[in-house]
Structure formats: structure tokens, C-alpha cells
Design a binder for these strands. Structure first.
Lengths: 233, 233
DNA sequence: CGGTAGATTGAGCCCAATCAATACCGGTGG
DNA sequence: CCACCGGTATTGATTGGGCTCAATCTACCG
């Protein structure tokens, strides 16, 4: 598994890494130490980073591409838990628990990742308080996101969840705005806890609220109208 | 709100506090410092500890009783996120983010709680590495639980979730075993992401798999049969 | 003995999963 | 440049799980 190539860190990836949610919080000293123990590698779609139950050895920072975290049911169906993109940290909780991975992680688009040995990082975190702080920050953030997501699932219908996602991703923007989905719709569907068909239907339902979808481009006519969708329907 | 009485720490509560997921990880020195800044108070059912969006000031350790964490939809419907019992920590993520609460917390049964000022704890954590470690541990644990819960919702039907809950709570036990629900069924329903009616129906469906429910007592005839429910139905 | 809150049961409905078929898109190779 | 192909997306028909509403039942307390 994971037949990946080891790489040198190019300047764009380096920038992403240094600005990631974890490394951007560090002092120059700690940052340098982290960079020293970083291994960079590229992955092909469908590569598996780790599987549930395996002893945890590494955690990752996404430099480019996307990785999805998911769990399997006993019958083999899978449920996506989270999708990570550039700058995101995967498996940070393993740094402390130092136990086993509790989910599966798979690359969805060609990706470049930075890999860290959790034991080395744990040792470093014991010495450098800023690293420990940064890790707590990541975990707090992820925890909040996860709980948010649970509540979202339980409270909102498919069109509401999609509307919410769109609003989060068209960053402000005037009344008429648009953006490009960073990944496949099937991946988005999983992230939102939907079957791909349900996502399609949600999009077409949102057409009457001024949302048009062509390929990966999402156009929003009236942002305020969308906000109401979240409340009403 | 929260018209609660300030109390002295009695010996049973003290034991619970010292054995809690947070304090049990600390050195004697740090433990003593934490105990110094602890305020103990008792709460009545329906008391609200905090609301979503309020500036975060405290986090809590449950000494007795139960507290549910939930979010509200814009129409006012509520979705439970988590239920905390004796020894559990509530709002730990606020220690680091030091921002606002991201959910609501309400007491469900008469409860005694230990309250900590997040700023004091944050300061202490900056000095004492064992406290920082313990906080990371709590967060990792909570994160795992939350993600587990999301996946559970998406993968399993109501009877499966209930079977899973029962199995987790009849700790080993021979083929024929029983236990008592620690709180109301409506609270359990919320925790499992179900309407109370759905929980009822799940219980009656599980009757044919050897589960009998009388009041809060759950009797399981055949633990292995239950394990299969999780996979099949 | 009423009273109240929780739990159960039934009926109807709605949302989203599933299955199946078709349309679309992006690449590859002629 | 176009024809083809495989993976992705859409659309339709059906099913089923769980929510909602409403009525009954139970248990606990005054």
C-alpha cells in the first residue's frame, strides 16, 4: 500500500506547510525542529494513509490535494467523517493517545503530504510549550467541527446542509457571486453525510433559490435568499 | 439563571473529582493547585450552565448527576451532542480557544459540579506540562467520541445504535446480565440521536433478541445475539 | 385519588437511501 | 479533430427508516 514517492519540499508546498494550522502557531525555533523531522511524499488517488485499528505511527499535514477520513460498518459500508485539504492536519489526536488509528484515511485527489512521526512530535511537545499549545488548538478546533457536524446532521435537511456549505465557501462576496468546488461532488456528498444522488437533488432544489451549478462552478444569485433556506426549508 | 448553591467539597465528590478524566492525570503538585481554584456548586434539573455564543468563562467537571450538551436550530429544535456524567469534563476546549461556547449545556438531573475558571487553568497549563498533557488527552478522547458518533449516526439504524449502547454498558458480564440506565430514556434517546418514540420502538424490536426493559433496568439474555444485531438488522 | 411527567403505541408522512437507467465530461488514441 | 471509453453526475421510481402528532398507559407524588 501507499507506494509513494519521497520528495524534496518545493517552495509552494513549503509555504503551505509553514502556514498550516499547526506550524503557523509555532515559534521559529520549534518550527525549525518540526521541519527537520518532516518527510514529504506524494500520493495517488485511492492511496490509503492508514486504516482503523492500525498502530498509529504518523500524522500528516496536507500540502495539496484532499484526504477523506471515514469509518466502515461491519457490512463494509463506509461513512465519511471529514475531508481535509491544504493546510489541514490529519490524525493529530494520535500524537497524544499514541495508540491506534480510529478511522481510515484515503487520498481522493493526487496529493502531497507532510508526514510526522508521532513519537518524535510527542517528545518535542513535551519540551516546547508552543507546540503543545498548537496541538491543543488543533484538537479544540477539530472537536468543535465534529460536534457541529453531528448537530448539523441531526437538525438539517439535505438542501439546508448544502446551502450552509455554499454560504461558508463563497466568502462574503456581494449578492451575486460564485466559486469553484475544490473536489468532486461525490466527495462533497460524503462530507455532508449524503448519497451523491441526494446532493444532486439538493442542488436542483436550490436552483429555485438562485443557485446554478455547472460542473464544479457554483453560482449564487442572492446570498440572502440562501440564508433563508437554512432556516425554512 | 443557574441559581445554584456554593458548597464545600464532601468526601465522595472529592473522590470523583480526583479520579476524573482530567485530575487523575495530574501530579500531586498540579492537582493541589487545581483543587485550590475549584468552586463546587449544586444545580437543579433544567439549570443552564452556558449558552451557545456566550463568552466562555468556565469549564466543569461533573461530580454527580448528568449534563447534556446540545445545539439549537434556527427554528428552535434542539439536537443533543453529548451527555456527560460523573468524572466527565465539559467545555475543556474553551480552555484553549478562550473564545465563546459553541453549544448549550443543561443539567438533566440534580447535579453537583466542579467549576474552573478557564483563564486560571490556561495560565496553569502554560506552566505545568502535565496539565497541558491531560487537557490534550481529554480533547483527543472527546474528538474520537464525537467522530465515532457521527459515523454511528450515518451507518447504523436505531436498533443497532441501541444494541451498541447496551453492549458498551453491560461491561463484559456473562451471557445473562443486566444493568440500570443511569438517566431518563428521553436523555438516552437524545444522546443516540433519536426521538424518544424511536428509542421505545428500538427497545421493543430488541425484545425478540433477548432484551427486556422494565423501567430503567435492562436485561440481556444473550450478549452474543445482540452483537449480531449490530451487524445485521 | 386525581395530577403530572415520562413512556409507549399507533397512524401518517416525509426525507433520503437504494436501485437502475441515462446523460455528461475528460481524457486517450486513432 | 473526432470517436470512443470509463468514471462521474443526474434523473426517475421505489423503499424504508424515523419524525411527528395524538392517544393511551404507567409510575411516582402530592
Amino acid at each position: 500500500m501507499a507506494v509513494n514517492r519521497i520528495l524534496k519540499l518545493n517552495s509552494r508546498d513549503r509555504e503551505t506547510l509553514v502556514n498550516s494550522t499547526l506550524l503557523s502557531q509555532l515559534s521559529v525555533g520549534t518550527l525549525a525542529q518540526m521541519l527537520e523531522i518532516t518527510a514529504i511524499a506524494s500520493y495517488e488517488p485511492r492511496d490509503v494513509l492508514f486504516r482503523e485499528g492500525e498502530p498509529a505511527e504518523n500524522f500528516y499535514c496536507v500540502l495539496s490535494g484532499y484526504v477523506r477520513l471515514y469509518k466502515l460498518s461491519k457490512e463494509g459500508r463506509e461513512a465519511d467523517i471529514e475531508v481535509y485539504g491544504p493546510g489541514d492536519i490529519i490524525g493529530a489526536s494520535a500524537v497524544f493517545t499514541q495508540d491506534r488509528y480510529f478511522a481510515n484515511a484515503q487520498v481522493s485527489e493526487r496529493a502531497t503530504l507532510a508526514r510526522f512521526d508521532i513519537h518524535k512530535v510527542a517528545d518535542l511537545a513535551a519540551e516546547e510549550a508552543d507546540l503543545a499549545s498548537a496541538l491543543i488548538g488543533i484538537l479544540s478546533q477539530h472537536l468543535q467541527t465534529a460536534l457541529e457536524c453531528s448537530a448539523n446532521d441531526r437538525l438539517h435537511t439535505a438542501p439546508q446542509r448544502v446551502a450552509h456549505y455554499i454560504l461558508q465557501n463563497c466568502d462574503g462576496g456581494g449578492s451575486n457571486t460564485s466559486f469553484r468546488l475544490p473536489y468532486q461532488k461525490s466527495l462533497l456528498a460524503g462530507k455532508l453525510g449524503l448519497a451523491p444522488e441526494a446532493l444532486s437533488r439538493a442542488f436542483s432544489m436550490l436552483r429555485e433559490f438562485g443557485v446554478s451549478v455547472r460542473g464544479r462552478i457554483i453560482q449564487i444569485e442572492d446570498v440572502d435568499a440562501l440564508r433563508n433556506v437554512c432556516a425554512d426549508r
